[in-house]
Simulated assay, not measured.
Amino acid sequence: METVFKAWATSRKLYLNFFDNYSLEQLNKIPDGFNNNLIWNIGHIIVAQQALIYKGSNLPMYISDNLVNLYQPGTKPTGPTSQTQVNELKELLISLIATTKSDFQKGIFNTYTERTTATGFHLASLSDAFEFNNYHEGLHLGYMMGLSRLI
Rank of each mutant, 00 (worst) to 15 (best):
F34M: 06
F34K: 15
F34A: 11
F34N: 14
N36T: 02
N36Y: 08
N36P: 08
N37W: 02
L38R: 04
I39W: 00
N41R: 05
N41F: 07
I42F: 02
G43C: 11
H44N: 11
H44E: 10
H44W: 05
I45N: 00
I45C: 00
V47Y: 00
V47E: 09
A48C: 09
Q49W: 05
Q49G: 04
Q50A: 08
Q50I: 06
Q50T: 06
A51V: 15
A51G: 03
I53A: 07
Y54D: 12
Y54H: 12
Y54M: 13
Y54C: 06
Y54E: 12
K55W: 03
K55Q: 13
G56N: 04
G56S: 06
N58T: 14
N58P: 02
N58I: 06
N58R: 14
L59S: 08
P60G: 06
P60C: 05
M61A: 06
M61W: 00
Y62K: 09
I63Q: 00
I63G: 02
S64D: 03
S64R: 02
D65C: 00
V68S: 01
V68I: 06
N69H: 06
L70W: 02
L70K: 05
Q72C: 14
Q72S: 15
Q72N: 11
P73H: 10
P73I: 08
G74S: 05
G74L: 07
G74W: 10
T75C: 01
T75I: 00
K76Q: 12
K76L: 07
P77R: 07
T78S: 13
T78V: 07
T78D: 09
T78R: 05
P80D: 12
P80F: 08
T81G: 05
S82I: 01
T84E: 15
Q85C: 09
Q85G: 04
V86H: 01
V86A: 12
V86D: 04
V86W: 03
N87I: 05
E88A: 02
L89T: 01
L89D: 02
K90D: 04
E91D: 13
L92Y: 12
L92H: 08
L92G: 07
L92S: 04
I94K: 02
I94R: 02
I94V: 09
S95M: 03
S95C: 07
L96C: 11
I97K: 12
I97D: 10
A98E: 15
T100M: 12
K101S: 10
K101W: 04
S102K: 14
D103W: 02
D103Y: 09
D103T: 01
F104N: 03
F104C: 05
Q105A: 04
Q105E: 12
K106L: 11
K106Q: 14
G107H: 11
G107M: 12
I108M: 09
I108W: 10
F109D: 06
F109R: 01
N110A: 04
N110W: 00
T111S: 15
T111R: 11
Y112Q: 10
Y112D: 12
Y112I: 04
T113R: 15
T113Y: 13
T113I: 15
T113K: 15
E114V: 11
E114Q: 15
R115W: 15
R115M: 15
R115V: 14
T116Q: 07
T116W: 13
T116G: 03
T116K: 09
T117C: 12
T117W: 13
A118C: 05
G120T: 05
F121T: 10
H122W: 10
H122Q: 13
H122E: 08
